[in-house]
């Protein structure tokens, strides 16, 4: 696997950093690869906008920062506006369906949308939207094994919340797999959701 740069961005309280940490753990601890996570600090990281970066690789990572993400996950409009221009050509954009309206975007980006907040609310806990998102990320990018992601989730949350987070991951992952299937089945290669999203 070549070096993959991922940025996850949203607002404070969405668990952006935990999501990045789960992905980094999956790769570096449960798959024996390498991962480097960094995050924005300082006043700008307290409460408002929040962003975490994680680099995945099969070799030791030298340069620690994300410059042109291969994958951008945005969970707020502000995060989309600020970070989508950085996305690498041919990269993957993942958006929270109800929180991000895609305004402008260059043509060669693959977009996947998931109502992570709604899926989390169906489990009774909005706070697990980050793990829904992590499951969805795993399904649509295949950048980390499903199994190692599951282990990383279990390893990252308190025991009392393990079952809830397992379900959150499941729901996100299933949603992603279903979306991929619909995309494959769709005669013109695009799912209804995606089309409607881009038409906004």
């Amino acid at each position: 696997m070549l070096l993959t740069e991922i940025r996850i961005a949203g607002f404070g309280g969405q668990g952006v950093i935990l999501a990045a940490s789960v992905i980094g753990k999956a790769k570096s601890i449960f798959e024996g690869g390498f991962a480097t996570m960094t995050q924005s600090f300082g006043p700008e990281a307290r409460g408002g906008a929040c962003s975490a970066q994680v680099i995945l690789s099969d070799n030791p990572i030298l340069y620690p920062y994300v410059t042109r993400p291969d994958v951008l996950i945005t969970m707020s409009q502000e995060a989309f506006t600020r970070f989508s221009p950085e996305l690498k050509p041919g990269g993957i954009l993942i958006v929270e369906h109800d929180l991000v309206r895609i305004t402008t975007l260059s043509g060669d980006v693959r977009v996947y949308s998931v109502p992570a907040t709604r899926l989390a609310e169906e489990l009774g806990r909005k706070m697990v939207l980050n793990i829904v998102m992590t499951g969805f990320f795993g399904a649509v990018t295949q950048l980390a094994d499903e199994d190692s992601l599951r282990k990383a989730v279990a390893d990252s949350v308190p025991a009392a919340f393990r079952e809830l987070n397992r379900k959150a991951f499941d729901n996100g992952y299933k949603y992603g797999i279903n979306l991929l299937e619909r995309l494959a089945d769709s005669p013109n290669g695009e799912a209804d959701e995606l089309i409607s999203l881009l038409e906004v």
Binding site: S21, S28, I29, F34, T36, T38, Q39
Partner: peptide, 10 residues
């Protein structure tokens, strides 16, 4: 340094 201090790795 700040980079090493705030960087998360295995």
């Amino acid at each position: 340094d700040e980079c090493v201090g705030h960087m998360t790795e295995k």
